[in-house]
């Protein structure tokens, strides 16, 4: 079953092309790792999927329904389309972006009460359940400023999970973390993968991608430059830029 389908997605910023004509079909349970040099468009691709950026061309289908309608110049997307799409695609950011004025439980419950119109006590109960899943139920009433980076990112994951997304988008979730804190976040993502969640994961943790992903995309030259199973792309890359990129990554272990 296709969860997400991109057809011919293109994006440029003021005349500078980031990528062109990207096609991607994500099946339920897929765990797709997206690799690529800095500036190759990994973040932009994720941001186009949940429409934090509007693609210049192409179409997005999520859960079998097309997002927006074709307009004269690219996609026409209403506020309602945006909402529907974002409820189905949860996003986790490199910089966590927790709401500093809300408690940890408040952060996780916010979407449930404000968007899903759940009562506050119900939202809190659900939030604490999600926090337990990422091992942070005891921090429910702390403010984000009191947490380590790894804990913040786990709260951000719980915040996304609380909305019951069909697909999770991770944009370098461990790149802002001290090396000592990377493991706890990767542990949570691995556990989600084992539960069969569908996810797109932009990462530089190549060893992790090898273990957890069932497909690897390598972005370069304005598109998906090479893709395949972890064995194909990471162990036996066929194309020169992929080979070069992997050679540059020293921390590379299987």
């Amino acid at each position: 079953m296709s969860v997400l389908k991109l057809v011919g997605i293109s994006k440029s910023f003021g005349g500078t092309r980031v990528f062109e004509n990207v096609d991607l079909d994500v099946e339920k349970g897929d765990r797709i790792a997206i690799l690529g040099a800095s500036g190759s468009g990994k973040s932009t691709l994720l941001r186009c999927i949940n429409l934090l950026e509007t693609p210049d061309a192409g179409s997005i289908e999520i859960g079998g329904t097309k997002v927006g309608s074709a307009g004269r110049s690219g996609l026409r997307i209403s506020e309602r389309d945006l909402q529907a799409l974002r409820l189905r695609a949860g996003m986790v950011f490199q910089q966590f972006n927790l709401f500093p004025h809300m408690t940890v439980a408040g952060n996780v419950a916010e979407g449930l009460s404000t968007v899903r119109r759940m009562s506050r006590p119900d939202a809190r109960t659900r939030a604490i359940m999600e926090l337990a899943r990422v091992g942070l139920a005891d921090k429910a009433d702390a403010y984000p400023a009191r947490l380590s980076g790894g804990q913040k990112q786990r709260v951000a994951i719980a915040r996304a999970l609380a909305m019951d997304p069909e697909i999770l988008l991770f944009d370098e979730p461990t790149s802002a973390l001290d090396p000592a804190l990377v493991g706890e976040v990767l542990g949570v993502i691995e556990q989600l993968a084992e539960e069969g969640r569908t996810m797109l994961l932009v990462t530089h943790e190549i060893g992790f991608a090898y273990h957890v992903a069932n497909r690897i995309l390598f972005l370069a030259e304005g598109g998906i430059y090479e893709s395949g199973t972890p064995d194909e792309v990471l162990k036996h890359p066929r194309r020169p830029l992929t080979q070069h990129f992997l050679k540059e990554h020293k921390r590379f272990q299987f």
Binding site: L52, E79, M91, N97, A156, A160
Partner: peptide, 18 residues
């Protein structure tokens, strides 16, 4: 306020007014 705050809130499907 950092743009990341907007993005995180928009990403959980809040409307601009929310």
């Amino acid at each position: 306020i950092e743009p990341g705050q907007w993005e995180a809130a928009r990403a959980i499907a809040m409307t601009p007014a929310q």
